[in-house]
Design a protein around this nucleic acid. Structure first.
Length: 556
RNA sequence: GGCCCGUUGGUCAAGCGGCUAAGACGCUAGCCUCUCACGCUGGAAACAUGGGUUCGAUUCCCGUACGGGUCACCA
């Protein structure tokens, strides 16, 4: 067959040569060892939590080495594209510290290796497609979409387990042989009728032969050669993932391809494609997937519909981006936690990220761990910072609370300052959404008696204690003086001022000083548990504190 | 079903031929002259399994089981 003729027939408008094209994509001049990485999502909606992993790895590797990190939009499947998804994605990712140097960025489209949207690169792919045809390495296939649909049904759908795989394979082979046998005359005929075609790779692969390969994370791998004439260009002239991946990463100078391990089975195709095209194979890193537990207790890949799959969900739940980033880092590099414990003041971007420390197997998403990380992150922040974050969260998710917070920033900040700043800060909440419950009682609008008085105390005793306390309350006392006054109340009301002494002979007292405190605490905060009562009353102020004590005794 | 990947406590994980098999989360006991939140000191809890190789295997090799992924004109 005259391949040149076939190529001209198929791609009459392609006149540019590969050499001409590649002049427009010169090698990058980067320092020694600099990595060029990319994040290449398809704009099908929100950013998947799992997407944060390759994105973070790519960002770290590139920026840590003085390289380039770019965003490429893989919008080759028009059917699944969601308008505006790309813009939202850039914004969300930026929130999580993932910023791009090229492609679509917060400041708009940047970079000299574009366009960075695959749908805009059609002509580029066609140059290589035509070249493959000229070399006899690709051929058109005019099977109608319906034919393929029928074939697909054989091994598709829920009955995957019941499909006869041997038959499906034989059918595939037969189909492939038939398609390969196409003549120039037939091509001309189809073309003259205006029939669309897909371009297939003419794979010379033998699946009894093995390909050896080294993945930077998985290590040495071995798999059968690809023997499938997979599709390079779809009937609309847009490339499939495989072809676009090869052309784009070659032209854009990607040094490290970072993607989920679900791509491992396609690797044979990619190795073959790069070879056929004469491209240098980039380094590959197939990262383990984040898993979830299904209803049977089995691990499953975190899929789009799962709770926690949407990155934006985390903000909504009240996790700040910093917490999520740290959690991701602990999963990505097993020594991150240790490093962070030694350098608590340094941002995670100072951590020497290492490919070697990446896990080979998938891990389960663990909210307990996230919560712990988040509590630590939040506890290290200044009260002002927590205030700002909480206010921002509340504005989106709880406007009424936001209004309260905004009404007096100084007051709110002083509340958030309780137990903050020292070597052992309080860790009361993991999520911004928990702040309201934690500090709500400081606001009369939200204050209510939530807990019940322990049953063993009579109302009269409680009333007597509180009245006694109120009578002698002196706002100018310091913490110790304040507690001494509570002890005084205990003593006068038949409660033991010393807990240990009480435990020696509980029958001699009505209770102990801790019980007296709990009466006051309940009246002041509405809860049996609260931060240091003395501080709480100082912030609340004498007037409001006494009013609450009074209201409480009245209600008994 | 074929192909590929994986398997250390409930979870995340150190380990890379010889150790009482780290640490973190969670759970739990006790302590911290009032609760909570911290903090501190403890505790329970693991090398999937059968064969090799070796003086010696969690570690190396093979099989088995189990789990995961993938088999599109989707990425």
């Amino acid at each position: 067959m005259d391949y040149q003729l076939l190529a001209d027939l198929l791609f009459p408008s392609v006149t540019k040569t590969r050499e001409e094209l590649e002049k427009e994509y010169p090698a990058r001049s980067l320092p020694e060892g600099a990595k060029v990485t990319r994040f290449a999502p398809s704009p099908t909606g929100f950013v998947h939590f799992g997407g944060l992993f390759p994105a973070t790895v790519g960002e770290r590797l590139a920026h840590q080495s003085g390289g380039v990190f770019y965003l490429r939009i893989e919008d080759t499947d028009a059917k699944r594209e969601v308008p505006g998804a790309a813009e939202g994605l850039v914004k969300t990712l930026a929130n999580y510290g993932v910023n791009f140097d090229e492609g679509m960025t917060l400041e708009g489209e940047k970079g000299a290796y574009g366009p960075y949207k695959q749908s805009l690169r059609r002509d580029i792919y066609h140059v290589y497609a035509k070249e493959l045809v000229v070399k006899g390495l690709a051929y058109p296939c005019f099977s109608s979409e319906e034919d393929l649909e029928a074939l697909k049904q054989v091994n598709k759908k829920e009955e995957l387990k019941n499909t006869d795989w041997t038959e499906a394979e034989a059918q595939r082979k037969a189909e492939q042989d038939r398609a390969r046998a196409i003549t120039l005359e037939e091509v001309k005929e189809h073309l003259s009728k205006g029939e669309p075609f897909v371009l297939r790779l003419l794979s010379g692969g033998d699946k009894d032969k093995k390909v050896r390969f080294t993945d930077l994370i998985k290590g040495n791998l071995e798999f059968p050669e690809n023997d499938e004439d997979f599709v390079l260009l779809k009937s609309d002239g847009i490339p499939t993932y495989h072809f676009a991946h090869a052309v784009d990463d070659h032209l854009m100078g990607t040094t490290h391809v970072i993607r989920g391990e679900e791509w491992l089975p396609s690797l044979a195709k990619h190795v073959q494609l790069f070879t056929f095209l004469g491209f240098k194979l980039p380094k590959y890193m197939h990262i383990a997937q984040i898993m979830r537990l299904d209803e049977n207790g089995n691990k499953k890949k975190l899929s789009k519909r799962d709770m926690g799959a949407n990155l934006d969900d985390y903000s909504r739940m009240g996790y700040c981006a910093e917490s999520v980033c740290e959690y991701v880092m602990t999963l990505l590099n097993s020594n991150y936690e240790e490093w962070h414990a030694k350098n608590p003041e340094l941002p995670y971007t100072d951590f020497p990220f290492s490919i070697k420390k990446m896990s080979v197997s998938g891990c389960l998403f663990d909210f307990d761990k996230l919560n712990d990380v988040s509590k630590n992150v939040l506890s290290r922040m200044t009260a002002e910072h927590v205030y700002d974050l909480t206010l921002a969260w509340a504005k989106e998710n709880d406007p009424d609370f936001a209004e309260l917070l905004a009404s007096d920033a100084v007051y709110a900040t002083s509340i958030l300052s309780i137990g903050r700043g020292g070597k052992k800060p309080r860790k009361d909440f993991a999520r911004l959404s928990e702040v309201k419950d934690y500090m709500g009682f400081f606001y009369d609008e939200l204050f209510e008696i939530k807990d019940a008085l322990p049953e063993q105390f009579s109302k009269e005793d409680v009333k007597a204690c509180i009245t006694d306390f109120t009578k002698n309350y002196d706002e100018s006392l310091d913490n110790t003086g304040w507690f001494d006054s509570v002890k005084g109340v205990a003593e006068r009301q038949g409660f033991c001022p010393d807990v240990k002494a009480y435990k020696q002979s509980p029958e001699s007292y009505k209770g102990h000083v801790g019980d007296v405190s709990s009466f006051i605490r309940l009246a002041i905060t509405g809860k049996l548990n609260s931060p240091d009562l003395y501080t709480v009353m100082q912030i609340l102020g004498k007037e409001r504190s006494l009013a609450r004590l009074d209201a409480f005794t009245q209600s008994l």
